[in-house]
Amino acid sequence: MDDFNYHEPRTLAEAAVVLHAARNGVYIAGGMSLIPALKHRRVRPSDLIDLRLIDGLAGIRREADTLVIGAMTKHADVAGLDIVRNSIPDLARLVGEMADPSVRNRATLGGSIAHADPASDYPPALLALEAIIVTDTRRIAAAEFFTGPFTTGLRKGEIITAVNFPIPDNAAYVKFANVASRYAIVGVFVARRAGKVCVAVTGAKPCVFRFGEMERALENSFTPDAIKAIVMSAQGLTADIHGTPEYRAHLIGVMAQRAVASAAAKPRPA
């Protein structure tokens, strides 16, 4: 690991000032993706700006039909707290199956989505739930946020403060995990709210994406059978040692049907 200057700003404004002043400044939240990258020298910052002492970035609250999760909220809290389980149970379950317990004790929502790993689990949840990413300067729709592999719509120095998750009527996430990394080979998040259906897919392309054809079919009939015949083209899907594009295309169908079956069986808690 290279040497760097370390900063612990107390406010968002101070953090942004330090970042803009640095030659190559990088924010750190939980560090579960960033520190391995530092160790392998894939990221070589001049300055590391730790967000941990800034008040108000962690915590979960419900505002009417929206669940607001602070950016520095740890996975263990999202997975474990009743406020999440009672409003979007499958979001709690999704986070509870990410990585492993010790990683979940450190990893944060903001850090995870800023890293934007194309096989990560949070992005399809944000996309399918039509979440809003709140930063220190603006609000970004999830559809505009995830722009490519390990890239987002965040501007230089912008800090995620929270994510607003509209509470769906039905939702489920089914993941087919790589047995080694536990990242998704394919994961499908299905959400239905006020008759609108979103189907978001992770692990299958360089960026999380929505599968419109399935969404339209499910809006007609929210049943696994409605999407049985819809097959994703293998064109452009990821190829690696864990899956061919054809396999991933097939898995999208299987995971989506299972997600729909699961979501349909779990209407929104009263």
Binding site: A76, S102, N105, R106, S181
Partner: peptide, 22 residues
């Protein structure tokens, strides 16, 4: 890569990978 857990310690009672924390 934060997977083997050989480095886990308790920080304020929580199990944490000490090789993935400054």
């Amino acid at each position: 890569t934060t997977q083997c857990g050989c480095c886990i310690v308790l920080i304020d009672g929580k199990a944490v990978n000490s090789c993935t924390m400054l």
